[in-house]
Amino acid sequence: MRAFDEDAVVFDGRSGHTHHLSDSAARILAVLQENGPATAQAVLQASAECVADEQFGRRMLDDLQHAGLIEAITPAGA
């Protein structure tokens, strides 16, 4: 992920696609990247706001969990 001041882009290594995230999602992800583990709920909130591609959203959460940036993935709607 490249986090800039106002927004960010994420490279999905499995599809080779690049995604542009909205301001709020980028801010949350930047905080996650800088500060380490956070609750999955915050990430879910971010992904719901920013990721129109649901499959990519799931993979992003999976990657974040593997990278230790979130503690656990909470099922959508939980």
Partner: peptide, 16 residues
Amino acid sequence: TAGETFMRVASNTFNY
């Protein structure tokens, strides 16, 4: 924004 610039440049590349 940097994100918008990123996406616009990426769409103008030959080998991204």
